[in-house]
Structures are given as structure tokens and as C-alpha cells.
């Protein structure tokens, strides 16, 4: 086995993993604040991917430019979803929330199937075929830029939660829901705002993901599971954990094809998930609940 080849694959895995990480970051932020597991997360990701493909094929908009409109639309959509659908469910038991989001997921994945059909859609851009040379290593240009965007978006989200008054208010709601209410915060508004932010993360990740893979409707449930694996491994509710988990899963997927059969690559991720749940249930970077 050629070490340069392995390094190239691992590097590609890191880049893809950062985009996965951004997607999972959305899930983690939503769970960390609203305490609802978004079982429709991957389905939202595929909707964003289709949005990017449609903007590209109809208006010729580059997916990097599509980020802005898609993320804005997703923020509004996410806000509306939390305010209209999920807020009444936050005091209900987990299985009831699960049912609600499974219903939403079923509607989303099949609506995509009705609109776009089962065939794969993709974005064809010339620069996606180019690569950057880094000594002996080769970097895929599209992947490299996608990973940069994922890092920038994650950094922006970190900064938002750390330095803005709204971000601080949201953290207050997450830490102590009742206390936040007592000091006069509109908790439901901040929950909806958080769901909007999580959705915007998914939107950006989706726009970047179309640069890496073709999109089909069944990708939705797959990404939902993938996002779960990533956030549990990294630590549900931990923002840095989501990125770390994404990179770990990205690298393991890339190398699984080399060391074991490619079809077993997700078996490895689920195995990792089981190990982490049993040995460190709060995740690698999570705090004990």
C-alpha cells in the first residue's frame, strides 16, 4: 500500500468530514438547546442539495453563491417549523417528538421523490475536476473549497454563540430553561431561532455536498443516521465535538474502502458509535449530562 495514496485518501476524508461535521453541527445545536432530536435532519440536507442543484441548472448559480439564498430560506423554514410544529411538542414525551419528526421526514423524502423522481442529480462545474498540488499530495479543488466554507460557517456559529447577545440568550435557554423564562427571555422565540440556525447549517452543508456527491431522495435517511453517528461520537450538544466526529467519520469512510470492503464502511461507523455510547456515552468532547 502506497503511503502517499493512503495520505491522499485520508486528506479527502478530512475534507468531506468537515462538511459532514457542519451538517451534524446543525443537529447538535438543535439538540443542545431545544432538546429535540431532529429525525428529519438528513431529509432537510437533501432538500438543500436539491435547492442548490435547481439554482445551478435554472439560473446557472454556482453552489458557492447559492449558499446565501438557500441558507436564508432554510433559516426561515427552520424558524417556522419550530414555531409552528415542534414548540407544542417540547413538553411531550420523546416517542411523541420522534413520531412528529418521522412524519415530517416521510413527507420530505417523498415530496422530493414526487418532484424530482428517483434519478440522481448533480452539478457539473469545470473547476471540480481540477486539483491542487501540495508537495506529493493532491487536493481536490471542490472538496478543498467546500471544507473551507464548512470551517468558516462553523467558526461564524461559534462566534455567534460566544459574542452576540442573541447567542448568549440562547445559551441561557439551553442551560436553564426555567431561569431564562424567569429573567424574561422569550424561550419559544429563541428555540425557533436556534432551529433556524441549525437549518441554516444544514443548508450550507447541503450546498457544499452537491460539489462532492450526486443527490437522490433516499440519501435523506442515510444522512440522518450519519448525522446521529457523528454527533453521538463527538458529543451530543457539543459544537466542537460535531466537527471532530465529522472528520473521524469522514476519514474512516475514506479508509474503510481501502482496508476493508467499501460496503462495510458504515458498519465501521456504527461500530464506533456503539463503542462510544458504551464507553463514553457523553461523546468524545461532550459534558456529562
Amino acid at each position: 500500500m502506497d503511503p502517499v495514496n493512503v495520505a491522499n485518501l485520508a486528506l479527502a476524508g478530512v475534507l468531506t468530514g468537515l462538511v459532514y461535521g457542519l451538517m451534524a453541527l446543525g443537529l447538535s445545536v438543535i439538540f443542545g438547546v431545544v432538546r429535540v432530536v431532529n429525525f428529519a435532519h438528513g431529509e432537510m440536507m437533501t432538500i438543500a442539495m436539491y435547492a442548490a442543484v435547481v439554482l445551478f441548472t435554472t439560473l446557472g448559480l454556482d453552489p458557492f453563491l447559492a449558499i446565501l439564498p438557500v441558507a436564508l430560506a432554510f433559516f426561515v423554514l427552520g424558524y417556522a417549523m419550530q414555531a409552528g410544529l415542534i414548540n407544542p411538542f417540547i413538553t411531550r414525551p420523546e416517542h411523541s417528538q420522534f413520531m412528529l419528526l418521522v412524519a415530517v421526514a416521510i413527507i420530505m423524502v417523498n415530496a422530493l421523490l414526487v418532484i424530482f423522481g428517483p434519478g440522481a442529480r448533480s452539478v457539473q462545474l469545470d473547476y471540480l475536476l481540477e486539483s491542487i498540488e501540495l508537495g506529493p499530495l493532491l487536493l481536490d479543488r471542490g472538496k478543498f473549497y467546500a471544507a473551507l466554507v464548512a470551517c468558516a460557517a462553523s467558526a461564524a456559529l461559534f462566534a455567534f454563540f460566544r459574542y452576540t447577545p442573541t447567542g448568549r440568550a440562547i445559551r441561557a435557554c439551553a442551560d436553564n430553561w426555567l431561569g431564562a423564562k424567569v429573567v424574561g427571555l422569550n424561550v419559544k422565540h429563541y428555540y425557533a431561532f436556534t432551529f433556524g440556525l441549525g437549518s441554516a447549517c444544514v443548508a450550507i452543508a447541503g450546498c457544499m455536498m452537491v460539489l462532492l456527491v450526486d443527490v437522490t431522495p433516499p440519501l435523506g435517511p442515510y444522512y440522518t443516521l450519519l448525522a446521529f453517528v457523528i454527533v453521538i461520537v463527538g458529543g451530543l450538544g457539543s459544537m466542537a465535538g460535531a466537527l471532530l466526529g465529522g472528520v473521524l467519520i469522514g476519514v474512516s469512510e475514506a479508509l474503510a474502502g481501502l482496508f476493508i470492503t467499501p460496503s462495510a464502511k458504515s458498519m465501521f461507523s456504527f461500530g464506533l458509535l456503539i463503542l462510544v455510547l458504551l464507553l463514553r456515552p457523553q461523546g468524545l468532547l461532550g459534558r456529562r449530562p
Binding site: 420523546e94 453521538i232 460496503s263 456503539i274 455510547l277 458504551l278
Partner: peptide, 28 residues
Amino acid sequence: AFRFGISGVYFALLTIAFAEFTRIGFDH
């Protein structure tokens, strides 16, 4: 799960993980 104090959402996700793990295992 119960020895390690896993409950609620985490338990639910653990059961998904075991089912998916087995699914891919049976493929081989």
C-alpha cells in the same frame, strides 16, 4: 445499555445502531 446508565434518546439511538450494524453485517 442499562449497566452504563444509557437511557432516553441515547438508548433509542443505541438500538438503531445495533440494528444498522447487524444489517450491514448480514450483507456480508
